[in-house]
Nucleic acid binder design. Sequence first.
DNA 1: CGTCTCGTTCGTGTATTGACGAATTCGACA
DNA 2: TGTCGAATTCGTCAATACACGAACGAGACG
Lengths: 236, 236
Amino acid sequence: MKPVLRQQLAEKMAGEITLSDSPGKALKKWRTSFQIAPGVLADHLGVSPSVISDYESGRRKSPGTGVVGKIVDSLLNVDEENGGTYIKKYGKLLFSDYDDEVIYDIHDFASSIPIRELSELIECTLICGELDSQIFGYTVINSTNAILNLSPNEFNRIYGWSTERALIFTDISTGKSPMIAIRVTPFKPPYVILQGIDEEHVSPLVKKLAEKDHITVLCTPLGVQDLVTRLRKTQW
Amino acid sequence: MKPVLRQQLAEKMAGEITLSDSPGKALKKWRTSFQIAPGVLADHLGVSPSVISDYESGRRKSPGTGVVGKIVDSLLNVDEENGGTYIKKYGKLLFSDYDDEVIYDIHDFASSIPIRELSELIECTLICGELDSQIFGYTVINSTNAILNLSPNEFNRIYGWSTERALIFTDISTGKSPMIAIRVTPFKPPYVILQGIDEEHVSPLVKKLAEKDHITVLCTPLGVQDLVTRLRKTQW
DNA sequence: CGTCTCGTTCGTGTATTGACGAATTCGACA
DNA sequence: TGTCGAATTCGTCAATACACGAACGAGACG
Protein backbone atom coordinates (compact mmCIF):
# COMPACT_ATOMS: atom_id res chain seq x y z
CA MET A 1 0.00 0.00 0.00
CA LYS A 2 1.48 3.28 -1.03
CA PRO A 3 1.49 5.68 1.87
CA VAL A 4 0.54 8.54 -0.40
CA LEU A 5 -2.76 6.89 -1.21
CA ARG A 6 -3.84 6.64 2.40
CA GLN A 7 -2.69 10.17 3.14
CA GLN A 8 -4.53 11.73 0.24
CA LEU A 9 -7.67 9.80 0.96
CA ALA A 10 -7.49 10.89 4.59
CA GLU A 11 -7.11 14.48 3.43
CA LYS A 12 -10.09 14.23 1.12
CA MET A 13 -12.25 12.76 3.90
CA ALA A 14 -11.12 15.28 6.50
CA GLY A 15 -11.66 18.13 4.06
CA GLU A 16 -15.16 17.04 3.23
CA ILE A 17 -16.09 16.57 6.87
CA THR A 18 -14.59 19.89 7.91
CA LEU A 19 -16.34 21.88 5.20
CA SER A 20 -19.66 20.15 5.62
CA ASP A 21 -22.62 22.06 7.01
CA SER A 22 -23.20 19.11 9.28
CA PRO A 23 -19.90 17.39 10.03
CA GLY A 24 -21.87 14.68 11.79
CA LYS A 25 -23.63 13.56 8.64
CA ALA A 26 -20.38 13.59 6.72
CA LEU A 27 -18.69 11.49 9.40
CA LYS A 28 -21.53 9.00 9.24
CA LYS A 29 -21.37 8.88 5.47
CA TRP A 30 -17.73 7.89 5.55
CA ARG A 31 -18.16 5.36 8.33
CA THR A 32 -21.01 3.67 6.49
CA SER A 33 -19.11 3.89 3.19
CA PHE A 34 -16.35 1.91 4.84
CA GLN A 35 -18.93 -0.51 6.22
CA ILE A 36 -17.73 -0.10 9.77
CA ALA A 37 -20.16 -0.46 12.69
CA PRO A 38 -20.32 2.36 15.26
CA GLY A 39 -19.23 -0.04 18.02
CA VAL A 40 -16.16 -1.17 16.12
CA LEU A 41 -15.10 2.40 15.47
CA ALA A 42 -15.66 3.28 19.12
CA ASP A 43 -13.49 0.33 20.23
CA HIS A 44 -10.68 1.40 17.94
CA LEU A 45 -10.82 4.92 19.24
CA GLY A 46 -10.98 3.69 22.80
CA VAL A 47 -14.16 5.62 23.53
CA SER A 48 -17.70 4.76 24.43
CA PRO A 49 -20.11 4.09 21.51
CA SER A 50 -22.24 6.98 22.65
CA VAL A 51 -19.44 9.34 21.65
CA ILE A 52 -19.69 8.25 18.01
CA SER A 53 -23.42 8.61 18.13
CA ASP A 54 -23.18 12.09 19.62
CA TYR A 55 -20.93 13.26 16.81
CA GLU A 56 -22.96 11.67 14.04
CA SER A 57 -26.24 12.94 15.42
CA GLY A 58 -24.88 16.46 15.33
CA ARG A 59 -24.82 17.13 19.04
CA ARG A 60 -21.28 18.41 18.50
CA LYS A 61 -21.87 21.10 15.89
CA SER A 62 -18.22 21.89 15.30
CA PRO A 63 -15.95 19.03 16.35
CA GLY A 64 -12.28 19.89 16.68
CA THR A 65 -9.61 19.00 14.16
CA GLY A 66 -8.25 16.55 16.72
CA VAL A 67 -11.28 14.30 16.85
CA VAL A 68 -11.94 14.50 13.13
CA GLY A 69 -8.37 13.46 12.50
CA LYS A 70 -8.58 10.58 14.96
CA ILE A 71 -11.84 9.30 13.52
CA VAL A 72 -10.58 9.44 9.93
CA ASP A 73 -7.41 7.68 11.01
CA SER A 74 -9.39 4.98 12.78
CA LEU A 75 -11.64 4.37 9.80
CA LEU A 76 -8.60 3.88 7.60
CA ASN A 77 -6.88 1.68 10.20
CA VAL A 78 -9.88 -0.61 10.51
CA ASP A 79 -10.08 -0.87 6.75
CA GLU A 80 -6.39 -1.67 6.46
CA GLU A 81 -6.78 -4.44 9.02
CA ASN A 82 -9.52 -5.85 6.82
CA GLY A 83 -7.31 -5.81 3.74
CA GLY A 84 -7.75 -2.21 2.71
CA THR A 85 -10.67 -2.86 0.36
CA TYR A 86 -12.17 0.58 0.59
CA ILE A 87 -8.90 2.47 0.69
CA LYS A 88 -8.04 0.85 -2.62
CA LYS A 89 -11.50 1.49 -4.00
CA TYR A 90 -11.61 5.16 -3.10
CA GLY A 91 -7.91 5.70 -3.61
CA LYS A 92 -8.25 4.88 -7.28
CA LEU A 93 -10.42 7.92 -7.68
CA LEU A 94 -7.68 10.20 -6.42
CA PHE A 95 -5.07 9.33 -8.98
CA SER A 96 -4.85 9.23 -12.70
CA ASP A 97 -3.20 6.25 -14.27
CA TYR A 98 0.06 8.01 -14.77
CA ASP A 99 0.30 9.43 -11.27
CA ASP A 100 0.34 5.93 -9.94
CA GLU A 101 3.32 4.87 -12.02
CA VAL A 102 5.28 8.03 -11.62
CA ILE A 103 4.90 9.44 -8.14
CA TYR A 104 5.93 7.16 -5.30
CA ASP A 105 5.35 9.71 -2.64
CA ILE A 106 4.55 13.39 -2.41
CA HIS A 107 4.31 15.44 0.72
CA ASP A 108 4.03 19.05 1.69
CA PHE A 109 5.06 20.22 5.13
CA ALA A 110 2.96 22.52 7.27
CA SER A 111 6.03 24.72 7.67
CA SER A 112 9.44 24.77 6.07
CA ILE A 113 12.20 22.50 7.30
CA PRO A 114 15.98 22.79 6.77
CA ILE A 115 17.19 20.67 3.86
CA ARG A 116 20.10 19.59 6.05
CA GLU A 117 17.66 17.74 8.29
CA LEU A 118 16.17 15.80 5.42
CA SER A 119 19.61 15.19 3.96
CA GLU A 120 20.86 13.60 7.16
CA LEU A 121 17.72 11.54 7.62
CA ILE A 122 18.20 9.73 4.34
CA GLU A 123 22.02 9.68 4.51
CA CYS A 124 22.78 11.90 1.56
CA THR A 125 26.16 12.80 0.07
CA LEU A 126 26.55 16.25 -1.46
CA ILE A 127 27.41 16.25 -5.17
CA CYS A 128 27.29 19.99 -5.73
CA GLY A 129 25.74 23.19 -4.37
CA GLU A 130 24.87 24.38 -0.87
CA LEU A 131 22.75 23.00 1.97
CA ASP A 132 21.76 26.23 3.59
CA SER A 133 18.08 26.75 2.85
CA GLN A 134 14.67 25.41 3.74
CA ILE A 135 12.16 23.33 1.80
CA PHE A 136 8.38 22.96 1.91
CA GLY A 137 8.01 19.38 0.72
CA TYR A 138 9.38 16.53 -1.31
CA THR A 139 8.37 14.33 -4.23
CA VAL A 140 9.67 10.83 -4.91
CA ILE A 141 9.57 10.20 -8.66
CA ASN A 142 10.28 7.15 -10.77
CA SER A 143 12.49 8.82 -13.34
CA THR A 144 12.01 6.29 -16.15
CA ASN A 145 8.24 6.32 -15.94
CA ALA A 146 8.14 10.08 -15.57
CA ILE A 147 10.08 10.63 -18.75
CA LEU A 148 8.18 7.95 -20.64
CA ASN A 149 4.67 8.79 -19.55
CA LEU A 150 4.27 12.43 -18.59
CA SER A 151 3.12 15.12 -20.96
CA PRO A 152 4.85 18.49 -20.51
CA ASN A 153 1.83 19.88 -18.72
CA GLU A 154 1.47 16.91 -16.45
CA PHE A 155 5.13 17.20 -15.55
CA ASN A 156 4.38 20.25 -13.46
CA ARG A 157 2.27 18.11 -11.20
CA ILE A 158 5.29 16.57 -9.56
CA TYR A 159 5.96 19.90 -7.96
CA GLY A 160 3.01 19.56 -5.65
CA TRP A 161 2.00 22.74 -3.87
CA SER A 162 5.33 24.42 -3.71
CA THR A 163 8.36 24.50 -5.98
CA GLU A 164 10.48 24.98 -2.87
CA ARG A 165 10.96 21.26 -2.54
CA ALA A 166 13.32 18.37 -3.01
CA LEU A 167 12.75 16.14 -6.01
CA ILE A 168 13.93 12.62 -5.29
CA PHE A 169 14.50 10.55 -8.42
CA THR A 170 14.46 6.77 -8.22
CA ASP A 171 15.28 4.17 -10.87
CA ILE A 172 18.24 6.10 -12.25
CA SER A 173 21.49 4.92 -13.81
CA THR A 174 23.83 7.91 -13.75
CA GLY A 175 21.40 10.74 -12.96
CA LYS A 176 21.76 12.34 -16.37
CA SER A 177 18.18 11.98 -17.63
CA PRO A 178 16.40 13.63 -14.69
CA MET A 179 18.81 16.58 -14.83
CA ILE A 180 18.15 17.00 -18.53
CA ALA A 181 14.41 16.88 -17.92
CA ILE A 182 14.77 19.63 -15.32
CA ARG A 183 17.00 21.67 -17.65
CA VAL A 184 14.19 21.92 -20.22
CA THR A 185 11.43 22.55 -17.67
CA PRO A 186 10.40 26.09 -16.74
CA PHE A 187 10.22 25.41 -12.99
CA LYS A 188 13.41 24.52 -11.18
CA PRO A 189 13.53 22.70 -7.88
CA PRO A 190 16.18 23.97 -5.46
CA TYR A 191 17.21 20.41 -4.55
CA VAL A 192 17.52 17.16 -6.46
CA ILE A 193 18.29 13.88 -4.72
CA LEU A 194 19.37 10.87 -6.74
CA GLN A 195 18.35 7.60 -5.10
CA GLY A 196 20.24 4.30 -5.17
CA ILE A 197 23.55 5.59 -6.43
CA ASP A 198 27.02 6.32 -5.01
CA GLU A 199 28.90 9.55 -5.58
CA GLU A 200 31.43 7.95 -7.96
CA HIS A 201 28.74 6.57 -10.30
CA VAL A 202 27.07 9.92 -10.85
CA SER A 203 27.65 11.24 -14.36
CA PRO A 204 29.95 14.30 -14.49
CA LEU A 205 27.35 15.98 -16.66
CA VAL A 206 25.00 16.12 -13.66
CA LYS A 207 27.18 18.67 -11.93
CA LYS A 208 27.46 20.84 -15.04
CA LEU A 209 23.71 20.85 -15.65
CA ALA A 210 22.97 21.52 -11.99
CA GLU A 211 25.27 24.51 -11.82
CA LYS A 212 23.53 26.16 -14.75
CA ASP A 213 20.26 26.24 -12.80
CA HIS A 214 21.83 26.67 -9.35
CA ILE A 215 20.45 23.36 -8.20
CA THR A 216 21.93 21.50 -5.26
CA VAL A 217 22.33 17.80 -6.04
CA LEU A 218 22.68 15.02 -3.49
CA CYS A 219 22.72 11.25 -3.71
CA THR A 220 21.63 8.56 -1.28
CA PRO A 221 22.49 4.86 -1.32
CA LEU A 222 19.23 3.89 0.43
CA GLY A 223 16.64 1.70 -1.26
CA VAL A 224 13.33 3.22 -2.32
CA GLN A 225 11.30 1.42 0.31
CA ASP A 226 13.64 2.37 3.14
CA LEU A 227 13.77 5.95 1.95
CA VAL A 228 10.00 6.36 1.71
CA THR A 229 9.54 4.75 5.11
CA ARG A 230 12.03 7.08 6.77
CA LEU A 231 10.48 10.15 5.22
CA ARG A 232 6.99 9.04 6.14
CA LYS A 233 7.59 8.14 9.73
CA THR A 234 9.16 11.48 10.50
CA GLN A 235 6.68 13.99 11.87
CA TRP A 236 7.71 17.16 10.11
CA MET B 1 -14.19 30.41 -12.49
CA LYS B 2 -15.44 26.87 -12.28
CA PRO B 3 -17.08 26.26 -8.94
CA VAL B 4 -15.59 22.79 -8.76
CA LEU B 5 -12.10 24.25 -8.66
CA ARG B 6 -12.78 26.40 -5.64
CA GLN B 7 -14.59 23.61 -3.86
CA GLN B 8 -11.86 21.05 -4.38
CA LEU B 9 -9.16 23.46 -3.38
CA ALA B 10 -11.11 24.32 -0.24
CA GLU B 11 -11.40 20.63 0.54
CA LYS B 12 -7.70 20.08 0.06
CA MET B 13 -6.86 23.01 2.34
CA ALA B 14 -9.36 22.01 5.01
CA GLY B 15 -8.15 18.42 4.89
CA GLU B 16 -4.55 19.38 5.29
CA ILE B 17 -5.30 21.74 8.17
CA THR B 18 -7.52 19.23 9.94
CA LEU B 19 -5.02 16.38 9.72
CA SER B 20 -2.04 18.50 10.66
CA ASP B 21 -0.31 17.96 13.97
CA SER B 22 -0.45 21.69 14.42
CA PRO B 23 -3.47 23.10 12.62
CA GLY B 24 -2.20 26.56 13.45
CA LYS B 25 0.95 26.17 11.38
CA ALA B 26 -1.06 24.76 8.51
CA LEU B 27 -3.48 27.68 8.66
CA LYS B 28 -0.58 30.10 8.59
CA LYS B 29 0.98 28.29 5.67
CA TRP B 30 -2.15 28.70 3.59
CA ARG B 31 -2.67 32.31 4.56
CA THR B 32 0.89 33.21 3.64
CA SER B 33 0.68 31.13 0.46
CA PHE B 34 -2.26 33.28 -0.55
CA GLN B 35 -0.28 36.38 0.41
CA ILE B 36 -3.00 37.65 2.70
CA ALA B 37 -2.12 39.73 5.77
CA PRO B 38 -3.50 38.64 9.16
CA GLY B 39 -5.37 41.92 9.50
CA VAL B 40 -7.08 41.55 6.15
CA LEU B 41 -8.21 38.03 6.97
CA ALA B 42 -9.48 39.17 10.37
CA ASP B 43 -11.48 41.97 8.73
CA HIS B 44 -13.10 39.57 6.30
CA LEU B 45 -14.02 37.21 9.09
CA GLY B 46 -15.32 40.07 11.19
CA VAL B 47 -13.09 39.19 14.12
CA SER B 48 -10.24 40.83 15.94
CA PRO B 49 -6.74 40.25 14.53
CA SER B 50 -5.71 38.61 17.77
CA VAL B 51 -8.03 35.73 16.97
CA ILE B 52 -6.05 34.88 13.85
CA SER B 53 -2.85 35.12 15.81
CA ASP B 54 -4.18 32.85 18.53
CA TYR B 55 -5.06 30.16 16.03
CA GLU B 56 -1.83 30.39 14.10
CA SER B 57 0.31 30.42 17.20
CA GLY B 58 -1.30 27.19 18.30
CA ARG B 59 -3.07 28.49 21.39
CA ARG B 60 -6.15 26.65 20.09
CA LYS B 61 -4.81 23.14 19.66
CA SER B 62 -7.90 21.70 18.04
CA PRO B 63 -10.02 24.37 16.34
CA GLY B 64 -13.51 23.29 15.37
CA THR B 65 -14.61 22.46 11.86
CA GLY B 66 -16.65 25.65 11.91
CA VAL B 67 -13.75 28.03 12.25
CA VAL B 68 -11.51 26.09 9.89
CA GLY B 69 -14.27 26.21 7.29
CA LYS B 70 -14.81 29.92 7.77
CA ILE B 71 -11.11 30.71 7.54
CA VAL B 72 -10.62 28.63 4.39
CA ASP B 73 -13.68 30.27 2.85
CA SER B 74 -12.39 33.72 3.71
CA LEU B 75 -8.98 33.05 2.23
CA LEU B 76 -10.59 31.96 -1.03
CA ASN B 77 -13.00 34.92 -0.98
CA VAL B 78 -10.21 37.42 -0.54
CA ASP B 79 -8.28 35.81 -3.36
CA GLU B 80 -11.31 35.86 -5.65
CA GLU B 81 -11.76 39.57 -4.95
CA ASN B 82 -8.17 40.03 -6.05
CA GLY B 83 -8.72 38.18 -9.30
CA GLY B 84 -8.35 34.62 -8.06
CA THR B 85 -4.63 34.40 -8.80
CA TYR B 86 -3.83 31.75 -6.24
CA ILE B 87 -7.03 29.75 -6.70
CA LYS B 88 -6.05 29.40 -10.33
CA LYS B 89 -2.46 28.61 -9.48
CA TYR B 90 -3.22 25.93 -6.92
CA GLY B 91 -6.32 24.71 -8.70
CA LYS B 92 -4.21 23.63 -11.65
CA LEU B 93 -2.53 21.11 -9.42
CA LEU B 94 -5.80 19.44 -8.58
CA PHE B 95 -6.80 18.56 -12.10
CA SER B 96 -5.24 16.82 -14.99
CA ASP B 97 -5.59 18.42 -18.37
CA TYR B 98 -8.46 16.22 -19.36
CA ASP B 99 -10.46 16.72 -16.18
CA ASP B 100 -10.63 20.39 -16.93
CA GLU B 101 -12.16 19.89 -20.35
CA VAL B 102 -14.49 17.10 -19.40
CA ILE B 103 -15.93 17.68 -15.96
CA TYR B 104 -17.86 20.91 -15.47
CA ASP B 105 -18.91 20.10 -11.97
CA ILE B 106 -18.80 17.17 -9.62
CA HIS B 107 -20.31 16.98 -6.18
CA ASP B 108 -20.97 14.39 -3.53
CA PHE B 109 -23.61 14.96 -0.88
CA ALA B 110 -23.06 14.33 2.80
CA SER B 111 -26.23 12.21 2.78
CA SER B 112 -28.47 10.91 0.05
CA ILE B 113 -31.18 13.09 -1.47
CA PRO B 114 -34.26 12.09 -3.47
CA ILE B 115 -33.71 12.30 -7.22
CA ARG B 116 -37.14 13.91 -7.49
CA GLU B 117 -35.81 16.94 -5.63
CA LEU B 118 -32.91 17.39 -8.02
CA SER B 119 -35.17 16.74 -10.99
CA GLU B 120 -37.56 19.52 -10.00
CA LEU B 121 -34.74 21.94 -9.22
CA ILE B 122 -33.41 21.80 -12.76
CA GLU B 123 -36.84 21.43 -14.44
CA CYS B 124 -36.43 17.94 -15.85
CA THR B 125 -38.80 15.99 -18.07
CA LEU B 126 -38.88 12.21 -17.67
CA ILE B 127 -37.92 10.28 -20.80
CA CYS B 128 -38.03 6.79 -19.32
CA GLY B 129 -37.69 4.92 -16.02
CA GLU B 130 -38.72 5.74 -12.45
CA LEU B 131 -37.99 8.61 -10.06
CA ASP B 132 -38.30 6.77 -6.78
CA SER B 133 -34.79 6.45 -5.36
CA GLN B 134 -32.04 8.52 -3.79
CA ILE B 135 -28.69 9.69 -5.07
CA PHE B 136 -25.38 10.57 -3.44
CA GLY B 137 -24.05 13.09 -5.92
CA TYR B 138 -23.93 14.36 -9.46
CA THR B 139 -21.42 14.94 -12.24
CA VAL B 140 -21.79 17.43 -15.08
CA ILE B 141 -19.88 16.14 -18.11
CA ASN B 142 -19.13 17.61 -21.51
CA SER B 143 -20.11 14.62 -23.60
CA THR B 144 -18.07 15.47 -26.69
CA ASN B 145 -14.86 16.05 -24.79
CA ALA B 146 -15.42 13.01 -22.59
CA ILE B 147 -15.72 10.71 -25.57
CA LEU B 148 -12.84 12.32 -27.43
CA ASN B 149 -10.38 12.62 -24.58
CA LEU B 150 -10.92 10.04 -21.88
CA SER B 151 -9.16 6.71 -21.71
CA PRO B 152 -11.32 3.81 -20.49
CA ASN B 153 -9.71 3.92 -17.08
CA GLU B 154 -10.04 7.64 -16.75
CA PHE B 155 -13.70 7.34 -17.64
CA ASN B 156 -14.36 5.86 -14.22
CA ARG B 157 -13.33 9.13 -12.66
CA ILE B 158 -16.54 10.82 -13.62
CA TYR B 159 -18.30 8.64 -11.12
CA GLY B 160 -16.75 10.47 -8.23
CA TRP B 161 -17.08 8.77 -4.87
CA SER B 162 -20.30 6.95 -5.44
CA THR B 163 -21.89 5.34 -8.46
CA GLU B 164 -25.27 6.19 -6.92
CA ARG B 165 -25.37 9.47 -8.74
CA ALA B 166 -26.84 11.40 -11.63
CA LEU B 167 -24.65 11.92 -14.68
CA ILE B 168 -25.58 15.14 -16.44
CA PHE B 169 -24.36 15.30 -20.04
CA THR B 170 -23.93 18.65 -21.75
CA ASP B 171 -23.09 19.46 -25.37
CA ILE B 172 -25.28 16.72 -26.81
CA SER B 173 -27.25 16.55 -30.04
CA THR B 174 -29.71 13.69 -29.61
CA GLY B 175 -28.33 11.98 -26.50
CA LYS B 176 -27.25 8.87 -28.40
CA SER B 177 -23.49 9.04 -27.83
CA PRO B 178 -23.51 9.30 -24.03
CA MET B 179 -25.91 6.37 -23.78
CA ILE B 180 -23.68 4.28 -25.99
CA ALA B 181 -20.68 5.19 -23.87
CA ILE B 182 -22.54 4.04 -20.76
CA ARG B 183 -23.67 0.84 -22.50
CA VAL B 184 -20.06 -0.25 -22.96
CA THR B 185 -18.92 0.84 -19.49
CA PRO B 186 -18.91 -1.62 -16.57
CA PHE B 187 -20.40 0.85 -14.07
CA LYS B 188 -23.93 2.06 -14.65
CA PRO B 189 -25.32 5.26 -13.19
CA PRO B 190 -28.94 5.00 -12.00
CA TYR B 191 -29.79 8.37 -13.56
CA VAL B 192 -28.77 10.17 -16.73
CA ILE B 193 -29.81 13.74 -17.41
CA LEU B 194 -29.45 15.20 -20.90
CA GLN B 195 -28.89 18.95 -20.86
CA GLY B 196 -30.09 21.51 -23.40
CA ILE B 197 -32.59 19.33 -25.22
CA ASP B 198 -36.38 18.94 -25.43
CA GLU B 199 -38.17 15.64 -25.13
CA GLU B 200 -39.05 15.48 -28.85
CA HIS B 201 -35.44 15.88 -29.99
CA VAL B 202 -34.15 12.95 -27.97
CA SER B 203 -33.20 10.00 -30.19
CA PRO B 204 -35.56 7.00 -29.83
CA LEU B 205 -32.47 4.83 -29.39
CA VAL B 206 -31.82 6.52 -26.02
CA LYS B 207 -34.88 4.88 -24.49
CA LYS B 208 -33.95 1.45 -25.85
CA LEU B 209 -30.39 1.63 -24.55
CA ALA B 210 -31.54 2.98 -21.18
CA GLU B 211 -34.00 0.18 -20.65
CA LYS B 212 -31.33 -2.45 -21.19
CA ASP B 213 -29.38 -1.11 -18.20
CA HIS B 214 -32.40 0.01 -16.16
CA ILE B 215 -31.31 3.60 -16.30
CA THR B 216 -33.73 6.46 -15.74
CA VAL B 217 -33.25 9.19 -18.32
CA LEU B 218 -34.37 12.79 -17.99
CA CYS B 219 -33.84 15.91 -20.03
CA THR B 220 -33.67 19.57 -19.07
CA PRO B 221 -33.93 22.62 -21.32
CA LEU B 222 -31.75 24.75 -19.02
CA GLY B 223 -28.41 26.17 -20.14
CA VAL B 224 -25.22 24.76 -18.64
CA GLN B 225 -24.42 27.88 -16.66
CA ASP B 226 -27.91 28.15 -15.20
CA LEU B 227 -27.92 24.45 -14.35
CA VAL B 228 -24.58 24.49 -12.59
CA THR B 229 -25.53 27.62 -10.67
CA ARG B 230 -28.78 26.10 -9.44
CA LEU B 231 -27.09 22.90 -8.34
CA ARG B 232 -24.32 24.79 -6.59
CA LYS B 233 -26.38 27.28 -4.70
CA THR B 234 -28.54 24.57 -3.17
CA GLN B 235 -27.31 23.42 0.22
CA TRP B 236 -27.80 19.67 0.03
C1' DC C 1 -42.50 -13.56 24.98
C1' DG C 2 -38.11 -12.82 27.22
C1' DT C 3 -33.53 -11.56 26.72
C1' DC C 4 -29.33 -10.40 24.58
C1' DT C 5 -26.84 -7.29 21.83
C1' DC C 6 -26.14 -3.13 19.69
C1' DG C 7 -27.15 1.59 18.89
C1' DT C 8 -29.07 6.09 20.34
C1' DT C 9 -30.48 9.74 23.59
C1' DC C 10 -29.49 12.50 27.25
C1' DG C 11 -27.84 14.52 31.86
C1' DT C 12 -23.57 15.77 33.70
C1' DG C 13 -18.66 17.43 34.91
C1' DT C 14 -14.43 19.15 33.26
C1' DA C 15 -11.41 20.97 29.79
C1' DT C 16 -11.02 23.64 25.91
C1' DT C 17 -12.51 26.65 22.48
C1' DG C 18 -13.78 31.05 20.67
C1' DA C 19 -13.68 35.80 21.04
C1' DC C 20 -12.42 40.20 23.09
C1' DG C 21 -9.43 43.94 24.25
C1' DA C 22 -5.43 45.72 26.71
C1' DA C 23 -0.60 45.49 26.75
C1' DT C 24 3.40 44.55 24.32
C1' DT C 25 6.56 43.59 20.57
C1' DC C 26 7.94 44.01 15.81
C1' DG C 27 9.10 46.19 11.44
C1' DA C 28 9.30 49.72 8.15
C1' DC C 29 10.54 54.18 7.31
C1' DA C 30 11.83 58.80 7.96
C1' DT D 1 17.00 56.59 16.61
C1' DG D 2 12.13 57.70 17.21
C1' DT D 3 7.55 57.01 15.66
C1' DC D 4 3.58 54.80 13.73
C1' DG D 5 0.81 50.99 12.19
C1' DA D 6 0.44 46.16 12.25
C1' DA D 7 1.07 41.78 14.49
C1' DT D 8 1.44 39.06 18.62
C1' DT D 9 0.87 37.77 23.46
C1' DC D 10 -1.98 37.13 27.14
C1' DG D 11 -5.74 37.47 30.88
C1' DT D 12 -10.48 36.72 30.94
C1' DC D 13 -15.21 34.87 30.41
C1' DA D 14 -19.04 32.65 28.29
C1' DA D 15 -20.11 28.93 25.32
C1' DT D 16 -19.25 24.57 23.89
C1' DA D 17 -16.61 20.37 23.03
C1' DC D 18 -15.49 16.05 24.89
C1' DA D 19 -16.24 11.97 27.27
C1' DC D 20 -18.76 9.11 30.43
C1' DG D 21 -22.41 6.14 31.83
C1' DA D 22 -27.19 5.35 32.78
C1' DA D 23 -31.47 4.88 30.60
C1' DC D 24 -33.99 3.80 26.68
C1' DG D 25 -35.32 1.68 21.95
C1' DA D 26 -34.99 -1.75 18.31
C1' DG D 27 -33.90 -6.00 15.90
C1' DA D 28 -32.37 -10.98 16.23
C1' DC D 29 -33.11 -15.36 18.07
C1' DG D 30 -34.57 -19.15 20.63
